[in-house]
């Protein structure tokens, strides 16, 4: 199997377009996933009886094959990008909901009580105390969900919205490996870059975790 390098210069435009397409499917999926997962997770965290139900439901969504998901949505949304995004969104839920619930669980009860004792409203406690403290665990989920979405977009090539996945179909039908290799390599690269971007975002959002190592220590220690 050889790579025909001559193929690349002729197809730069196509590669750029497909990469943009790929992102236009994967990124909204993660954003919508977050939009749905955050309230669900808060609900599961606050209302104990709902917890098992919410986590179980998102688990079942995950067992439905990605290809089957797209196909099952066909009668509802047809051959559109919406189908691809909806399917991927459902897929991100399992990681996002689970990680957000775990992140909220890990916030020490003392911290929550202290915030309430100072007269902060429950909503404000959630937004300014609990969610920021849960952020590292939530972001770990966002990273997994993003990488997974980027990889799964190619499955949507069967319904015509596969982004770089279109290259696989193309190479397969013409028995020509070069576009397939290009597609795999670009997908991996995209996942790597997206992951790095998310790590930077997390770094920017959690200034309190920066210090020499781990949580900030009281300055007194240095003198001792």
């Amino acid at each position: 199997m050889t790579i025909e390098w001559g193929w690349f210069p002729d197809h730069t435009g196509e590669l750029v377009r497909l990469t943009a397409d790929h992102l236009a499917t994967a990124v909204p999926a993660v954003l919508f996933g977050l939009l749905i997962a955050l309230p669900l997770a808060v609900l599961a965290h606050r209302v104990r009886p709902l917890r098992g139900f919410v986590l179980g439901a998102s688990n079942i969504l995950y067992t439905i094959p990605s290809l089957a998901f797209f196909v099952l949505l066909l009668p509802v949304t047809g051959l559109t990008r919406t189908t691809a995004i909806t399917g991927l969104t459902a897929y991100t839920l399992v990681v996002l909901v689970r990680n957000t619930v775990e992140g909220l669980d890990a916030v020490p009860a003392r911290v929550r009580e202290a915030s309430r004792a100072m007269g902060t409203s429950p909503l404000r406690t959630l937004l300014t105390v609990e969610l920021p403290l849960a952020l590292p665990v939530i972001m770990a989920g966002v990273r997994v969900a993003t990488v997974m979405s980027i990889s799964l977009v190619s499955v949507a090539s069967y319904i015509g919205y596969g982004g770089l996945g279109q290259l696989f179909t193309d190479g397969f039908q013409r028995n020509f490996p070069t576009p397939v290799i290009a597609g795999v390599a670009l997908t991996l690269l995209l996942a790597l870059v997206a992951d790095a971007v998310l790590v930077s975002v997390q770094w920017l959002c959690t200034p309190w975790l920066r210090g020499a190592s781990g949580p900030r220590r009281p300055k007194l220690r240095k003198r001792a």
Binding site: M1, S151, L152, S154, V155, V184, L188, A191, L192
Partner: peptide
């Protein structure tokens, strides 16, 4: 693990098939 998650299965199967 994150490499494995990023590897598109459809691409891999096509590649091995063509090879």
């Amino acid at each position: 693990a994150s490499f494995g998650r990023a590897l598109p299965t459809v691409g891999l199967v096509t590649l091995v098939f063509l090879a």
